[in-house]
Protein backbone atom coordinates (compact mmCIF):
# COMPACT_ATOMS: atom_id res chain seq x y z
CA UNK A 1 0.00 0.00 0.00
CA UNK A 2 1.22 3.38 -0.89
CA UNK A 3 0.14 5.26 2.17
CA UNK A 4 0.04 2.46 4.68
CA UNK A 5 3.36 0.71 4.55
CA UNK A 6 4.58 -1.65 7.26
CA UNK A 7 6.45 1.10 9.00
CA UNK A 8 3.28 3.14 9.22
CA UNK A 9 1.39 0.12 10.47
CA UNK A 10 3.97 -0.42 13.18
CA UNK A 11 3.58 3.16 14.26
CA UNK A 12 -0.20 2.76 14.42
CA UNK A 13 -0.11 -0.38 16.47
CA UNK A 14 -0.41 1.28 19.81
CA UNK A 15 -2.98 3.83 18.77
CA UNK A 16 -6.64 3.45 19.46
CA UNK A 17 -9.64 5.23 18.06
CA UNK A 18 -12.57 5.55 20.37
CA UNK A 19 -15.93 6.78 19.30
CA UNK A 20 -18.99 7.57 21.25
CA UNK A 21 -22.16 5.45 21.43
CA UNK A 22 -24.23 7.89 19.54
CA UNK A 23 -22.50 7.15 16.30
CA UNK A 24 -24.80 5.58 13.75
CA UNK A 25 -24.33 1.87 13.56
CA UNK A 26 -24.66 -0.68 10.88
CA UNK A 27 -27.28 -3.43 11.48
CA UNK A 28 -24.70 -6.17 11.37
CA UNK A 29 -23.06 -7.30 14.58
CA UNK A 30 -19.96 -5.53 15.57
CA UNK A 31 -17.85 -4.47 18.48
CA UNK A 32 -19.88 -1.51 19.52
CA UNK A 33 -22.76 -1.70 21.97
CA UNK A 34 -26.01 -0.30 20.68
CA UNK A 35 -28.59 1.72 22.51
CA UNK A 36 -31.21 -0.64 21.25
CA UNK A 37 -31.91 -4.14 22.55
CA UNK A 38 -31.02 -6.96 20.35
CA UNK A 39 -29.16 -10.19 20.10
CA UNK A 40 -26.01 -10.49 22.04
CA UNK A 41 -24.50 -12.26 25.00
CA UNK A 42 -24.74 -9.22 27.23
CA UNK A 43 -27.84 -9.36 29.56
CA UNK A 44 -29.61 -6.07 29.72
CA UNK A 45 -32.80 -6.42 31.86
CA UNK A 46 -36.01 -8.35 32.63
CA UNK A 47 -39.26 -6.92 31.32
CA UNK A 48 -42.81 -7.97 32.06
CA UNK A 49 -44.22 -10.06 29.28
CA UNK A 50 -46.54 -8.33 26.90
CA UNK A 51 -48.68 -10.05 24.36
CA UNK A 52 -46.82 -10.38 21.13
CA UNK A 53 -43.43 -11.08 22.68
CA UNK A 54 -41.71 -14.13 21.47
CA UNK A 55 -42.32 -16.97 23.85
CA UNK A 56 -38.74 -18.21 23.48
CA UNK A 57 -37.56 -15.07 25.22
CA UNK A 58 -39.58 -15.91 28.39
CA UNK A 59 -37.37 -16.56 31.39
CA UNK A 60 -38.87 -19.73 32.81
CA UNK A 61 -36.74 -19.66 35.92
CA UNK A 62 -38.26 -16.38 36.96
CA UNK A 63 -41.80 -17.67 36.13
CA UNK A 64 -41.11 -20.67 38.41
CA UNK A 65 -40.09 -18.43 41.22
CA UNK A 66 -42.49 -15.51 40.79
CA UNK A 67 -45.35 -17.17 38.93
CA UNK A 68 -45.34 -14.28 36.50
CA UNK A 69 -44.03 -13.97 32.97
CA UNK A 70 -40.92 -11.99 32.37
CA UNK A 71 -39.06 -11.54 29.18
CA UNK A 72 -35.25 -11.56 29.23
CA UNK A 73 -33.64 -8.78 27.15
CA UNK A 74 -30.04 -8.48 25.81
CA UNK A 75 -28.01 -5.44 24.50
CA UNK A 76 -27.75 -5.21 20.78
CA UNK A 77 -24.16 -5.12 19.34
CA UNK A 78 -23.62 -3.10 16.12
CA UNK A 79 -20.76 -2.31 13.68
CA UNK A 80 -19.64 1.31 13.30
CA UNK A 81 -19.08 2.93 9.89
CA UNK A 82 -16.61 5.69 9.24
CA UNK A 83 -16.45 7.89 6.16
CA UNK A 84 -13.11 9.57 5.66
CA UNK A 85 -13.47 12.66 3.52
CA UNK A 86 -10.22 13.82 1.95
CA UNK A 87 -9.97 17.28 0.41
CA UNK A 88 -8.34 16.93 -3.01
CA UNK A 89 -8.55 20.55 -4.04
CA UNK A 90 -5.58 22.32 -5.62
CA UNK A 91 -4.50 23.92 -2.39
CA UNK A 92 -3.75 20.46 -0.98
CA UNK A 93 -1.00 20.12 -3.54
CA UNK A 94 1.12 22.77 -1.79
CA UNK A 95 4.22 21.32 -0.25
CA UNK A 96 3.67 17.85 1.21
CA UNK A 97 0.10 18.42 2.24
CA UNK A 98 -1.50 15.85 -0.07
CA UNK A 99 0.84 13.13 0.97
CA UNK A 100 0.28 13.95 4.62
CA UNK A 101 -3.49 14.01 4.09
CA UNK A 102 -3.45 10.58 2.44
CA UNK A 103 -1.32 9.11 5.18
CA UNK A 104 -3.61 10.50 7.82
CA UNK A 105 -6.69 9.20 5.98
CA UNK A 106 -5.25 5.74 5.67
CA UNK A 107 -4.17 5.75 9.28
CA UNK A 108 -7.67 6.67 10.38
CA UNK A 109 -9.13 4.00 8.07
CA UNK A 110 -6.81 1.43 9.51
CA UNK A 111 -7.71 2.37 13.08
CA UNK A 112 -11.40 2.04 12.22
CA UNK A 113 -11.07 -1.22 10.35
CA UNK A 114 -8.75 -2.68 12.95
CA UNK A 115 -11.63 -2.48 15.42
CA UNK A 116 -13.84 -4.46 13.13
CA UNK A 117 -15.74 -1.47 11.93
CA UNK A 118 -16.28 -0.34 8.39
CA UNK A 119 -14.38 2.50 6.77
CA UNK A 120 -14.95 4.25 3.48
CA UNK A 121 -13.23 7.08 1.62
CA UNK A 122 -14.61 10.07 -0.18
CA UNK A 123 -12.27 12.50 -1.94
CA UNK A 124 -13.64 15.74 -3.25
CA UNK A 125 -12.78 19.06 -4.77
CA UNK A 126 -15.64 21.00 -6.29
CA UNK A 127 -17.71 17.86 -5.86
CA UNK A 128 -17.27 14.24 -4.75
CA UNK A 129 -14.63 12.67 -6.85
CA UNK A 130 -13.57 9.27 -5.66
CA UNK A 131 -15.84 7.33 -3.31
CA UNK A 132 -15.26 3.93 -1.69
CA UNK A 133 -18.21 2.80 0.45
CA UNK A 134 -17.50 1.72 4.00
CA UNK A 135 -16.70 -1.85 4.57
CA UNK A 136 -15.18 -3.86 7.35
CA UNK A 137 -12.16 -6.01 7.07
CA UNK A 138 -8.51 -5.24 6.67
CA UNK A 139 -8.71 -6.32 3.08
CA UNK A 140 -10.77 -3.25 2.38
CA UNK A 141 -7.82 -1.06 3.16
CA UNK A 142 -6.27 -2.02 -0.15
CA UNK A 143 -9.23 -0.58 -1.95
CA UNK A 144 -9.05 2.59 0.09
CA UNK A 145 -5.35 3.05 -0.59
CA UNK A 146 -5.88 2.47 -4.26
CA UNK A 147 -8.63 5.06 -4.35
CA UNK A 148 -6.36 7.61 -2.74
CA UNK A 149 -3.57 6.68 -5.09
CA UNK A 150 -5.82 7.42 -8.03
CA UNK A 151 -6.65 10.85 -6.74
CA UNK A 152 -4.45 13.88 -7.08
CA UNK A 153 -5.04 17.40 -5.85
CA UNK A 154 -6.25 19.91 -8.33
CA UNK A 155 -8.99 22.40 -9.05
CA UNK A 156 -10.84 24.78 -6.87
CA UNK A 157 -12.98 23.94 -3.95
CA UNK A 158 -15.81 25.48 -2.09
CA UNK A 159 -15.50 23.48 1.05
CA UNK A 160 -18.83 24.43 2.57
CA UNK A 161 -20.87 23.49 -0.46
CA UNK A 162 -18.95 20.28 -1.10
CA UNK A 163 -19.49 19.14 2.46
CA UNK A 164 -23.20 19.87 2.19
CA UNK A 165 -23.38 17.64 -0.85
CA UNK A 166 -21.44 14.92 0.86
CA UNK A 167 -23.74 15.09 3.84
CA UNK A 168 -26.59 14.03 1.62
CA UNK A 169 -24.75 10.86 0.60
CA UNK A 170 -24.14 9.69 4.15
CA UNK A 171 -27.50 8.32 5.22
CA UNK A 172 -26.69 6.57 8.43
CA UNK A 173 -25.10 7.93 11.49
CA UNK A 174 -21.41 7.36 11.18
CA UNK A 175 -18.02 8.71 12.01
CA UNK A 176 -16.98 11.38 9.56
CA UNK A 177 -13.28 12.21 9.42
CA UNK A 178 -12.51 15.31 7.40
CA UNK A 179 -8.92 15.68 6.23
CA UNK A 180 -8.52 19.10 4.66
CA UNK A 181 -6.58 22.34 4.82
CA UNK A 182 -9.85 24.15 5.47
CA UNK A 183 -9.00 26.92 2.99
CA UNK A 184 -12.35 28.57 2.75
CA UNK A 185 -14.78 30.60 4.68
CA UNK A 186 -14.36 29.39 8.27
CA UNK A 187 -17.87 30.22 9.32
CA UNK A 188 -19.36 28.28 6.39
CA UNK A 189 -17.15 25.27 7.07
CA UNK A 190 -17.95 25.27 10.75
CA UNK A 191 -21.68 25.67 10.00
CA UNK A 192 -21.71 22.69 7.62
CA UNK A 193 -19.83 20.50 10.02
CA UNK A 194 -22.25 21.50 12.72
CA UNK A 195 -25.04 20.23 10.47
CA UNK A 196 -23.24 16.88 10.36
CA UNK A 197 -23.26 16.91 14.04
CA UNK A 198 -26.97 17.71 14.05
CA UNK A 199 -27.56 14.55 12.10
CA UNK A 200 -25.87 12.72 14.92
CA UNK A 201 -22.73 12.00 13.01
CA UNK A 202 -19.48 11.91 14.88
CA UNK A 203 -17.11 14.41 13.21
CA UNK A 204 -13.34 14.60 13.43
CA UNK A 205 -11.44 17.33 11.60
CA UNK A 206 -7.81 16.89 10.69
CA UNK A 207 -6.41 20.11 9.26
CA UNK A 208 -3.36 19.64 7.10
CA UNK A 209 -1.04 22.64 6.71
CA UNK A 210 2.33 23.55 5.35
CA UNK A 211 4.38 25.69 7.78
CA UNK A 212 4.86 28.32 5.07
CA UNK A 213 1.14 28.88 5.05
CA UNK A 214 1.40 29.92 8.63
CA UNK A 215 4.56 32.04 8.59
CA UNK A 216 4.60 33.19 4.97
CA UNK A 217 8.25 32.40 4.88
CA UNK A 218 9.15 34.22 1.67
CA UNK A 219 11.43 37.20 1.12
CA UNK A 220 11.05 40.40 -0.75
CA UNK A 221 8.80 41.03 -3.70
CA UNK A 222 6.97 37.86 -4.67
CA UNK A 223 4.31 36.94 -7.20
CA UNK A 224 2.13 34.30 -5.58
CA UNK A 225 0.46 31.84 -7.93
CA UNK A 226 -2.59 30.12 -6.60
CA UNK A 227 -2.66 26.33 -6.85
CA UNK A 228 -6.44 26.39 -6.88
CA UNK A 229 -7.57 28.91 -9.44
CA UNK A 230 -4.23 29.73 -11.05
CA UNK A 231 -4.62 33.38 -10.09
CA UNK A 232 -1.58 35.51 -9.13
CA UNK A 233 -0.88 38.17 -6.56
CA UNK A 234 2.22 40.45 -6.63
CA UNK A 235 3.21 41.63 -3.24
CA UNK A 236 6.09 42.20 -0.87
CA UNK A 237 6.30 39.21 1.39
CA UNK A 238 8.26 41.17 3.96
CA UNK A 239 5.65 43.86 4.04
CA UNK A 240 2.56 41.69 4.32
CA UNK A 241 3.99 38.93 6.45
CA UNK A 242 3.05 40.48 9.71
CA UNK A 243 -0.64 41.22 8.88
CA UNK A 244 -0.96 37.88 7.09
CA UNK A 245 0.33 35.92 10.04
CA UNK A 246 -1.92 37.88 12.30
CA UNK A 247 -4.94 37.12 10.13
CA UNK A 248 -3.98 33.45 9.75
CA UNK A 249 -3.73 33.08 13.50
CA UNK A 250 -7.12 34.69 13.87
CA UNK A 251 -8.66 32.12 11.53
CA UNK A 252 -6.91 29.33 13.40
CA UNK A 253 -8.49 30.51 16.60
CA UNK A 254 -11.84 30.83 14.83
CA UNK A 255 -11.73 27.16 13.77
CA UNK A 256 -10.59 26.03 17.18
CA UNK A 257 -13.37 27.81 18.96
CA UNK A 258 -15.98 26.73 16.40
CA UNK A 259 -15.11 23.04 16.55
CA UNK A 260 -14.64 23.09 20.26
CA UNK A 261 -18.11 24.59 20.70
CA UNK A 262 -19.63 21.88 18.52
CA UNK A 263 -17.77 19.16 20.40
CA UNK A 264 -15.89 18.10 17.36
CA UNK A 265 -12.40 16.72 17.55
CA UNK A 266 -10.01 19.01 15.71
CA UNK A 267 -6.28 19.19 15.20
CA UNK A 268 -3.77 20.79 12.85
CA UNK A 269 -1.10 18.67 11.23
CA UNK A 270 1.97 20.35 9.77
CA UNK A 271 4.05 18.79 7.12
CA UNK A 272 7.25 19.51 8.96
CA UNK A 273 6.14 17.51 12.02
CA UNK A 274 6.11 13.72 11.99
CA UNK A 275 2.49 12.76 11.33
CA UNK A 276 2.38 9.76 13.67
CA UNK A 277 3.38 11.97 16.61
CA UNK A 278 0.74 14.52 15.78
CA UNK A 279 -1.81 11.76 15.32
CA UNK A 280 -0.95 10.07 18.59
CA UNK A 281 -1.24 13.38 20.30
CA UNK A 282 -4.59 13.98 18.66
CA UNK A 283 -6.00 10.56 19.52
CA UNK A 284 -4.83 10.65 23.11
CA UNK A 285 -6.46 14.04 23.49
CA UNK A 286 -9.71 12.66 22.12
CA UNK A 287 -9.71 9.66 24.46
CA UNK A 288 -9.69 11.74 27.62
Amino acid sequence: MKYLDPIALAKLRNLDLRVRKSVSWAPSSGRHRSATRGLSNDFAQHRAYAPGDELRRLDWKVYARKDRFYVKEFDEERMATATIMVDASGSMGFGGKWDLACRLAMAMAYLVVAKGDAAGILTFDVGPREAVPPRAGLGHLEALDAALGRSAPGGETDLGRVLEKAAGQIKRRSLIVLVSDLMGDPSAVVAVLKSFKARRHEVMVLRVLDPRERSLDFEGPVVFESLEDGGTLASDADAIREPYVREFERIMRLYESGFHGAEMAYASFFTDVRWELSLANFLSRGSK
Binding site: G90, G95, D181, P221, F224, E225, S226, L227, L233, E247
Partner: peptide, 25 residues
Protein backbone atom coordinates in the same frame (compact mmCIF):
# COMPACT_ATOMS: atom_id res chain seq x y z
CA UNK B 1 13.58 47.76 -10.42
CA UNK B 2 12.53 46.01 -7.25
CA UNK B 3 8.94 46.17 -8.36
CA UNK B 4 9.81 44.24 -11.51
CA UNK B 5 12.18 41.82 -9.95
CA UNK B 6 9.53 39.77 -8.08
CA UNK B 7 9.99 36.02 -7.69
CA UNK B 8 7.14 33.74 -8.68
CA UNK B 9 6.18 31.20 -6.08
CA UNK B 10 3.27 28.78 -5.81
CA UNK B 11 0.99 29.15 -2.88
CA UNK B 12 -1.91 27.09 -1.70
CA UNK B 13 -4.67 29.64 -1.54
CA UNK B 14 -4.56 33.37 -2.15
CA UNK B 15 -7.84 34.29 -0.51
CA UNK B 16 -6.27 35.35 2.74
CA UNK B 17 -3.26 36.95 1.07
CA UNK B 18 -5.48 39.01 -1.16
CA UNK B 19 -7.47 40.26 1.78
CA UNK B 20 -4.34 41.24 3.66
CA UNK B 21 -2.74 42.82 0.62
CA UNK B 22 -5.84 44.88 -0.06
CA UNK B 23 -5.73 46.30 3.45
CA UNK B 24 -2.01 47.15 3.72
CA UNK B 25 -1.17 48.16 0.18
Amino acid sequence: LNLRRSRRVEFSDLTLLRAVEARSL
